[in-house]
Simulated assay, not measured.
Amino acid sequence: MHNNYSVNVACLCDKNFNKYLEEIKSFFTFKMLIIDRDIKNDTLFNFDAIIVDSETINKIPENLKELPKILIKKNQNLKNETNLAEISFKLPLNIFKFNKEIVELCKKSEFHKNSVIKIKDYTLDKNARVLKKGEKTLKITEKEINFICTLKNSKSPLSKKFILEKIWLYSSGTETHTIETHIYRLRQKVKEIFGDHTFIKNIKNGYTL
């Protein structure tokens, strides 16, 4: 049995299947908690996914609806319900495959969550190296991503010297116009694709969003 869990999975199934999962949960490398439809929004658990069946997939509590879903198919012809879940399993379960795929699903979901950042009206996908707004997208470099993220996380404007040495990793003796050129190109790309003149602001003390 594994004692150190990094993945929390909610289970919202019928009583018989809940009982079955309780009996085999010692084989899981994730922590499973059986819940009911009345679970409160202030639950202490931060779930990474939810296990449902054909009867409960449309009865998920509002605060858990955005979680990745694992569907237990009791009826082999449930095509519509299958489309509502990220992965599905037929009975009887292969316990080890069940465990492995749930853990992998949660890891992928967490990776995606950490790689996507909201900035103003934009979405920055660090993994795909893309800045999005509505239907428009802009491919950007890794250094540009680091620059934008650092600006977002900074409470005060960033000086040219800081950007030069800490983000673009130039030596302290490099002329600041080098970094000005990089930032100008990024601002022009944003302006060209999104028509945004003020995504990156250049004020007296440095650059900010």
Rank of each mutant, 00 (worst) to 15 (best):
S172T: 11
V116F: 00
E62K: 13
N3M: 15
K136P: 00
P61Y: 00
S26K: 11
F17M: 05
E101F: 08
K143W: 02
I39A: 07
K189T: 03
S154I: 07
G195Q: 08
N99G: 00
K160C: 09
T123R: 14
T82R: 07
T178Q: 12
L71P: 13
T137C: 06
M32A: 04
V9F: 01
A128N: 12
C11M: 11
G173Y: 13
I39D: 06
H182C: 03
F199R: 05
K204M: 09
N75C: 08
I102K: 01
F111I: 15
R129H: 15
L93Q: 09
H2N: 06
S159V: 05
K139V: 03
L209W: 01
A128P: 04
N99P: 01
S171F: 06
F30Q: 13
L71R: 09
I167D: 00
K166P: 02
T137N: 11
Y170M: 08
K160N: 13
N16H: 13
E175G: 08
S109P: 03
P157Q: 00
N127D: 06
T178I: 14
I183P: 01
D125H: 10
E62L: 08
K107G: 00
S159L: 00
E55K: 08
N46Q: 12
N8S: 08
I179K: 02
A49M: 10
K73G: 01
L12A: 07
K73C: 15
E175L: 11
K189R: 14
F199I: 08
E55Y: 05
G195R: 01
I183W: 03
I183Y: 04
N127C: 06
I24R: 08
V52I: 14
A85T: 11
F30Y: 15
E165N: 14
E165V: 14
F45T: 14
S115D: 07
G195V: 10
K40F: 08
K189A: 13
T178A: 01
K166G: 03
I140H: 07
V52P: 03
I70Q: 04
N16G: 13
T123N: 12
L138W: 08
L131K: 01
I24C: 10
D53W: 10
K139L: 09
N18E: 11
L209H: 02
I50L: 04
N114V: 00
N4A: 10
W168N: 05
L169T: 12
I102H: 00
K97M: 10
Y5R: 07
K120T: 02
V103K: 15
I95W: 04
I95D: 02
I119G: 01
K126W: 07
I87D: 04
T141A: 07
N99T: 01
N153F: 04
N16A: 15
E135K: 13
A10Y: 12
K152C: 07
K100D: 15
N202K: 12
I70H: 01
K143S: 09
K31A: 12
L33D: 06
K161V: 13
L105G: 10
T137V: 02
H197Q: 12
K100G: 04
I51Y: 02
E104L: 09
L44G: 14
L33S: 11
K108R: 15
P68T: 13
G134R: 12
